[in-house]
């Protein structure tokens, strides 16, 4: 079944006509993803054309949902307008909004998260690579690719991957695929301090998904989301989990690229997170090169 999205999921893209959004919409179409609509205010009625696909563009998300039945959205809208775009998706009743945009002010996300409470919409991101549920075709073609991950590195299978970082997700996925092991779904939850979906949220979904038989959880310095997930895993998770925490060598008080990757006031250290993983029985990859092997040894 995979989690969050399946190859049948109907996707709309907010910001489809921007350079970044357009480039990745083309890649998703090439991958075989059901991109059914685009939204760019003021460009309603036009079409996004690529490789024989003709995707209708709408002025509003509500219109796009009504006309096409889209249930998920990828947000490629620039930072000053991204929170507004997310809330438009929530208002339109989407099941899933995946915010790829990097650089959204924290205050905007604090308000957005508050405003979303009680809605049916799940937000993934922002500042994330997105989600991939691999397909069964060549190079996992025919899957659902929402965001900016390279589709071809995936392979249909049974391992769930959750990470804050894009390139580390790709690294883990490629390690699995190179060993002939496929993935159920790969989720990048994003590197910002305020995000819509946590490690724990995704772990719970993987735990409940009959298709997922093992999990790779990649964390990094900052916050305490990894510790919370580890605590739950120790109590409830029925599946083997292997993990890696990035940033053991990062100096305290410095933001390491991601807005959320910072050790401040002695909180959010790699040491504390690794200790929490160990206490929860999560397999620790000694290096980022060993993520897949660490999990496979546990299975």
């Amino acid at each position: 079944m995979a989690i969050l999205v399946t190859p049948q999921t109907k996707l709309l893209v907010q910001g489809i006509t921007g350079e970044f959004g357009a480039r990745h919409t083309k890649l998703s179409l090439d991958y075989g993803t059901q991109v059914v609509a685009g939204v760019t205010p003021g460009k309603g009625g036009q079409f996004f054309e690529h490789g024989g696909h003709k995707v209708p563009i709408f002025d509003t998300v509500a219109d796009a949902v009504k006309q096409t039945g889209a249930t998920a959205s990828a947000v490629f809208v620039p930072p000053p307008f991204a929170a507004d775009a997310i809330l438009e998706g929530v208002d339109a009743g989407l099941d899933l909004v995946v915010a790829i945009t990097e650089g959204i002010p924290v205050r905007d996300m604090v308000r957005t998260k508050q405003a979303m409470a009680g809605s049916k919409t799940r937000l993934i991101g922002p500042n994330c690579p997105g989600i991939v549920t691999p397909g069964t075709g060549k190079d996992s073609h025919g899957g659902c690719r929402i965001g900016i991950a390279p589709g071809y590195i995936h392979k249909k299978g049974n391992i769930g991957v959750v990470s804050r970082s894009g390139t580390l997700t790709y690294e883990a996925v490629w390690q699995l695929t190179s060993r002939g092991v496929g993935q159920s779904t790969c989720v990048g939850i994003g590197g910002d301090p305020v995000n819509g979906t946590s490690h724990l949220d995704v772990i719970k979904l993987f735990n409940a998904d009959p298709e997922t038989t093992g999990i790779i959880m990649i964390g990094e310095i900052g916050g305490s989301a990894e510790e919370e997930a580890a605590e739950w895993i120790a109590q409830h998770c029925k599946k083997p989990v292997a993990g890696f925490i990035a940033g053991a060598t990062a100096p305290p008080g410095r933001r390491m690229g991601h807005a959320g990757a910072i050790v401040s006031g002695g909180k959010g250290t790699a040491e504390a997170k690794i200790a929490a993983f160990k206490a929860a029985g999560i397999g620790i990859a000694a290096t980022p090169s060993d993520m897949a092997d660490t999990l496979l040894k546990m299975m």
């Binding site: 804050r164 894009g166 390139t167 690294e171 990035a246 053991a248 990062a250 390491m256």
Partner: peptide, 16 residues
């Protein structure tokens, strides 16, 4: 390195 997560992980593996 490309990507913040991989960049941190690269520092870590050098130390390892």
């Amino acid at each position: 390195v490309n990507g913040a997560g991989l960049a941190m992980a690269t520092m870590d593996i050098i130390q390892h």
